[in-house]
């Protein structure tokens, strides 16, 4: 393999990221600093976790629009548990299990009731969001439990604990995908479900498990987010699932063929975070940012999907 080909094999999005970094640092002298890098890491960490979960779901040819709501719910459950006087580990466990439970319901609707993932998870988004509002009476719940806040904080100026924890979770998801039967079955179901079934894999069960897994991982992200923000806000997760889908697709994961990897999603998350952070750095008014981000992302996805489709058609 020639060095040139190796270079070409690096996904385009990597070069886009590099170009963004170069462009922003040329525009602003405050950009290329360690502190700003740590900022990006702390802010993007939780999205990385949700995206990892979403990537697993999409690799199995599914979709989960309820992940933003699951993330919110997990944070709320943990903070409420703390408020009820439960010790920190128990509160965290309660939050994680809430995600597992919600994932199990979603998975049942999709794998066993054979609902379309899109409709099932859109409905679940409504239900979970509703329950979160009910649990919190539509108010943000603050917490001052120092041990809890610790997991989302940074130690000193240079040790971003939230980012480190999320990094560990992300690597675990990567390892699950590559080094467990479940991970390989995800690729099998997404790539050739009938072939997987004929090869003796219980595709229904593993499909169900995909959503259980995604719910659990997402809940962990939600708890870290609540700790970082020191508040469980019932609307914090609105729209996160779309960022996660966008990062997954931009990272080169196909919506239909079981092709892709969570490592690509890392680059997708990085792209989104670079854009967000860069907009701040170059002084885009905050009020403009959601609109600009939304527009850029949807057209980037369209570009990516049509490229992927062309590649697959040429196969």
């Amino acid at each position: 393999m020639s060095p040139l080909k190796t270079l070409l094999d690096i996904p385009k999005i990597f070069w886009v990221n590099v170009a963004l970094i170069v462009a922003f640092s040329l525009i602003s002298s405050r950009y290329m600093t360690i502190l700003n890098a740590i900022n990006i890491m702390q802010q993007g960490a939780v999205l990385l976790v949700i995206t990892a979960a979403m990537t697993i779901v999409i690799l199995s040819e599914g979709l989960d629009l309820s992940l933003g709501a699951v993330m919110t719910m997990a944070g709320v459950v943990s903070v409420l548990a703390l408020g009820a006087g439960l010790p920190v580990p128990v509160a965290i466990l309660a939050g994680v299990l809430s995600g597992t439970f919600l994932g199990a319901i979603t998975g049942t609707l999709i794998a066993f009731c054979k609902m379309s993932p899109f409709i099932a998870t859109l409905g679940m988004q409504g239900v979970i969001f509703g329950f979160t509002l009910a649990l919190t009476h539509s108010k943000a719940i603050f917490t001052d439990n120092a041990n809890f806040i610790l997991i989302g904080s940074r130690i000193g100026r240079y040790v971003p604990l939230a980012a480190i924890l999320c990094g560990i979770i992300f690597l675990s998801v990567w390892a699950t995908l590559h080094h467990t039967k479940f991970g390989r079955y995800v690729i099998a179901i997404g790539g050739n479900e009938s072939g997987a079934h004929l090869s003796g894999i219980n595709t229904t069960f593993w499909k169900w498990f995909v959503y259980v897994f995604a719910g659990t991982v997402t809940a962990m992200g939600g708890i870290i987010l609540a700790a970082r923000l020191e508040v469980a806000d019932p609307i914090v997760g609105v729209g996160w699932e779309f960022d996660a889908i966008a990062a997954t697709v931009l990272g080169g994961t196909s919506l239909t063929t079981g092709r892709g990897d969570v490592s690509g999603s890392f680059l997708g998350v990085l792209l989104i975070m670079l854009l967000r952070n860069g907009m701040n750095v170059v002084g885009t008014p905050p009020i403009w940012q959601p609109a600009l981000m939304g527009t850029i992302i949807i057209f980037a996805i369209a570009f990516q999907v049509s490229t992927t489709m062309r590649e697959e058609a040429g196969r």
Partner: peptide, 16 residues
Amino acid sequence: FNLIPFLNVAENIFID
């Protein structure tokens, strides 16, 4: 075609 496109040869042989 009953193989899994994005799994490697060894994984396909021992898929189950």
